[in-house]
């Protein structure tokens, strides 16, 4: 995917030069390896700051909320579905956007690479199917790209953007041989006691920094329920009940909207996989309502429609 960079710069430069947009949202290299950061380019001469590789896991739809100016935005499969969700939820207007689709081959799991590497990492680069890690002591390690993808990317079945005005490259082949719900089925199969302990362990390290919420394009409420003080819905501390309430409620707020982009998990400083919560709801929406979030502009979200034949087995 590294080969996309030239095309990304070229498109950004063209759009800014001919004044089609006021701003381009893309990625530039971060100050740490494997940590590209979102960047907002307003002048054509700055377009060369842009890059594209396997470290662009942040969801750029997050930066479109409430924007009024003309913006060009680079969108992977998941970003494009969150952009659709944003348009459907009236958070941005379609005609203010130029969507540049980026057919995706998955993002690199920075924690996995770091944990499988001995020594301090100086730089990480990609060549085709390989990820090459250069160490501070001069050594280097190589990984097969597919072995170090983020959990959600390894199981992603919508890598191509669903909406775009132009593409940086040809569409990629979608994965069809993956078992998308394996992890969720495992949790569903646990008995009540075991499941409770599972979630206690999963969420125990949470420090309530809210990085997961802030990285998520869906979490755009002006005042999040966790920050409300009148009424105060939940305590602010580390009490397990408050931590769980935050996570479970946030997941429900994302039900039928989450695209499993992985931005939340990526942002977490302590490496919690809170996606397991949103993914369960993604699975329910799919099984109950055949709904996948953000696939088309003309479909109302699952929790926004009523059909006489909606399943209601839980009502007695």
């Amino acid at each position: 995917m590294i080969a996309y960079t030239d095309k990304v710069r070229q498109i950004a430069r063209r759009l800014l030069e001919d004044c089609s947009v006021e701003m381009v949202i893309g990625f530039r290299k971060g100050s740490q390896p494997m940590m590209n950061e979102p960047c907002f380019i307003k002048k054509a001469e700055d377009a060369d700051q842009l890059v594209w590789d396997g470290n662009c896991g942040i969801n750029l739809a997050n930066y479109l909320t409430g924007r009024k100016e003309k913006i060009a935005v680079f969108a992977k499969g998941c970003d494009s579905r969150n952009i659709v969700t944003h348009i459907v939820e009236n958070k941005v207007q379609r005609d203010r956007l130029v969507i540049i689709g980026v057919p995706c081959t998955g993002m690199i799991d920075k924690r996995l690479v770091a944990s499988q590497t001995e020594g301090e990492i100086e730089a990480v680069s990609e060549t085709g199917d390989k990820v090459v890690v250069k160490l501070k002591d001069g050594g280097s390690t190589e990984f097969d790209r597919r072995q170090v993808l983020q959990g959600n990317c390894a199981l992603c079945v919508h890598r191509n953007p669903v909406i775009y005005d132009e593409l940086v490259a040809d569409l990629v082949e979608e994965q069809t041989d993956v078992d998308h719900w394996a992890d969720i089925r495992e949790i569903e199969a646990m008995d009540v006691e075991k499941r409770r302990r599972f979630f206690e362990d999963l969420l125990a390290p949470c420090i309530r920094c809210y990085a997961c919420r802030n990285a998520c394009p869906l979490c755009y409420c002006p005042t999040c329920f966790v920050d409300e003080s009148r009424p105060q819905w939940l305590g602010k501390g580390q009490d397990q009940i408050d931590v769980h309430t935050f996570h479970f409620l946030r997941a429900f707020h994302c039900a039928g909207r989450c695209t499993d982009c992985g931005a939340c998990q990526r942002a977490c400083p302590v490496g919690i996989n809170m996606r397991l919560l949103t993914k369960k709801l993604e699975k329910d929406c799919f099984e109950l309502y055949q709904w996948e979030a953000g696939m088309a502009l003309d479909q109302r979200p699952a929790l926004d429609t009523y059909k006489p034949d909606d399943p209601e087995g839980f009502i007695k």
Binding site: V192, E193, R195, R196, R197, H244, F248, F314, I315, K316
Partner: peptide, 13 residues
Amino acid sequence: MGVEPDRLHFSWI
């Protein structure tokens, strides 16, 4: 999330 299924009921009356 570990709440016993029998503890929560929904009905339409």
